[in-house]
Amino acid sequence: MSLQPDDKAPNASMSAPRGWLRAVVVAALAIVFVSAAIGFVGFLSQLRGAEMKPASPADGIVVLTGGSSRVSDAIELLAAGYGKRLLISGVHPTSAASDISRSLPDNQSLLSCCVDLDHSAINTRSNAAETRRWAHERGFKSLIVVTSNYHMPRAIVELSHAMPDMTLVPFAVVGDKWRDEPWWTNGATLRLLLSEYVKYVAAEVRVRLADAGLELAPEPDEPPTGSIAPPRPATAQTN
C-alpha cells in the first residue's frame, strides 16, 4: 500500500501565522479606534456650551479671526475694561481698521485708540507667534484669548507653547448653531468638530515633541519690529 503525501499540513502551518497576523492587525485597529473615540470625548468635554465673562481683567486681549462674532465679543470685553489693548490676529491683508469700524459703529473710539491689527498670521500657529511678539513688546503678562469654543483647545495649546510665561484666560465664543441644536444632529457641525479634533491632536503631538527637543516643523523666524510682513494668499486659513 502506497502512502499519499499529506498536503493539508503545510497549508495549516501557513494559515496559522496569517491568522495570528490578522488578529494583531484587527486588535491594533480596535485600540486605535477606541483611543481616538476616548480622545474625542475628552476634546468635547473641553468645549464650553455657554459664554462666561472672565473672572478678572488681564493686561491685554487677543482675538483670533475666523468665526462669527469673535471680533464683536472681543470689542465688548475691551469696552468693559477687561484689557488695556486688543489685538485682532489674522486680519485679511486687504482689510483695514475702517472696514472693522463700519461693522462696529458704536466702538469707533476704541478702534482708533486701543486696537491693533495683525495681517501676518494665516493659521493658529502664526496667530500664536504674532501674539507673542505683540504681548512682549508691551510687557503684558496676562491675556484674555477670544475664539470659538471648538477652536479654543488648539488655540491654548499653540499660545501656551509660544508663551509659556504668559497667563492665558480663555473666553470661548459660542455660535448660534451650537446653542440651537445638539452638535451630533448636524452633519456640518460634526464634520467641523472631527476636523478640529484632528488638528488639535496634531498640534498636541508637535508641541510635545518640540518640548522634548524634536522640532519636526521649525517655526519661522519673527520679522524685526516694524518690518513689512511678507504677502500672503488672498484667502487666509480659517481657524
Rank of each mutant, 00 (worst) to 15 (best):
A36I: 04
L104A: 13
Y197H: 00
L64I: 12
W184T: 09
A217E: 14
M166Q: 04
N149L: 04
G66E: 11
D7M: 14
A202Q: 07
A188F: 03
A36N: 09
R206P: 04
A234G: 15
K199Y: 11
F33N: 13
Y197I: 00
Q4W: 07
I38M: 10
L64W: 14
L194G: 00
S45D: 01
R133D: 03
P164C: 12
I88F: 05
A210N: 03
V157W: 01
G81I: 02
H92L: 14
S95M: 10
V25W: 13
T185F: 12
L21I: 08
L29G: 05
T189W: 01
L64N: 10
L214Y: 11
L111C: 06
P182Y: 12
L194E: 02
A80I: 09
A23S: 11
S15L: 12
V173K: 15
G213M: 05
P164S: 13
E215Y: 05
C113V: 03
A80Q: 15
P231L: 11
V115S: 03
A155G: 05
Q237V: 12
R132D: 12
K177S: 15
T167R: 15
I122N: 06
R133K: 09
G39Y: 00
P93C: 12
A50G: 03
A188H: 06
P54I: 03
V207R: 01
V169S: 02
L29E: 08
T147R: 11
D221Q: 07
L87C: 09
V32H: 07
N186Y: 05
D165Y: 01
A121D: 08
R102S: 08
